[in-house]
Design a protein around this nucleic acid. Structure first.
Ligand SMILES: [Mn+2]
Ligand SMILES: [Mn+2]
Ligand SMILES: [Zn+2]
Ligand SMILES: [Zn+2]
Lengths: 123, 123
DNA sequence: CAAAACAATGCAACTTAGTCGCAAAGGAAA
DNA sequence: TTTCCTTTGCGACTAAGTTGCATTGTTTTG
C-alpha cells in the first residue's frame, strides 16, 4: 500500500479496507475519469457492486473523490483535485480533463462537464 | 398554433402532430430547462412516455432542442439557442442559464453543465 | 480470552428513467 | 376504396444504481 493512498484515507478519516484500497488504487493510476465497469476491470480484487457503490458514496461524501454523469447514463469517478472541467466527445467518447476560465462564474462550482465533438474528431 | 412554433417545425423539417405541438408549446414558454415529468405536468395533452421520448429524440436529431443530464439522473430539455451553460444548484436544485467564456476551449462544444452551490444558497 | 457491539460485505430483490417491439390508428397518396 | 407510410399506445424490457438483510470481520469491553 502506497503511502500516498494511506495518507488520503487518513486525511478523509476513512478506515482502509481491502475493498476501499482496491478502488482507490485504480483511481490513483487512472489518466481520466472511469466508470464502475472500467474500475471493476482494473481492480485486483472482486467485490459486489453494492460494496463498490457504498464505498464510492463514502468517498464522495468525504470529498476524497468527485463524480459526474456522462451522456451514457453512467457515473464517472476521479480523485479530487483542483476544480477543472471535463470534455466528453460524442464521437470518440473520450473524456478529457481541461481548464476553463471561471472568473465570471458566480457560486461555488464543484463540477463542469462539456459535451461536443473534440478537436481530433472534428477535423 | 403560434406562427413561431410553426416556423420551427418547418425549419427543422418535422411534420407537426398534436403530440409534437404540445411538447414544443411547453418548451416555448419555459423559463428554464424542464424534464419529462415537468413537461408532462404542463402539457395540455396526455401522451404516452414512449411517444414523448420518440418525439424528443427526433427534435434533438434535427437540432431543434437540446438536452442534458442533471444529477438526478433525468434529462432536461430546452429549445436550442446560442450555446450557453447551465448551472445546477445542489441545494435549491434550480437550473440557471449562464454565459461562459469559451475562447480557450478547443473542439465543437454542444453543451456545458456546471454543478455546485449557487450564489444565493452559498450566502 | 470470551462476549458483546459495531462496521463492512455479499446477495438478491428492488427502483426507475428511458427503450423497444408490435399492433392499432391516422393520414397521405394512388 | 385500397395501399402505403407515419405516428401512437401499450406493455414488456433494460440497466445503473439502491436497499434490506443475513453473514462475516473487526473493535471494544468485561
Ligand atoms: Mn479530471
Ligand atoms: Mn438554457
Ligand atoms: Zn473525439
Ligand atoms: Zn441554489
Amino acid at each position: 500500500m502506497h503511502d500516498h493512498i494511506k495518507a488520503l484515507f487518513v486525511k478523509h478519516k476513512i478506515k482502509h479496507t481491502h475493498a476501499r484500497l482496491a478502488i482507490v488504487e485504480v483511481l490513483k493510476e487512472a489518466k481520466a475519469p472511469l466508470n464502475y465497469e472500467q474500475i471493476k476491470a482494473k481492480m485486483n480484487l472482486a467485490m459486489d457492486k453494492a460494496t463498490f457503490y457504498r464505498n464510492i458514496a463514502m468517498f464522495e461524501a468525504s470529498g476524497m473523490i468527485h463524480k459526474f454523469e456522462s451522456d451514457d447514463r453512467k457515473w464517472y469517478f476521479e480523485l479530487s483535485s483542483t476544480t477543472h472541467a471535463h470534455f466528453i466527445c460524442d464521437a470518440c467518447h473520450q473524456i478529457k480533463c481541461i481548464e476553463i476560465n471561471m472568473d465570471t462564474i458566480e457560486g461555488d462550482v464543484k463540477s463542469i462537464v462539456l459535451k461536443g465533438t473534440c478537436k481530433e474528431c472534428k477535423a
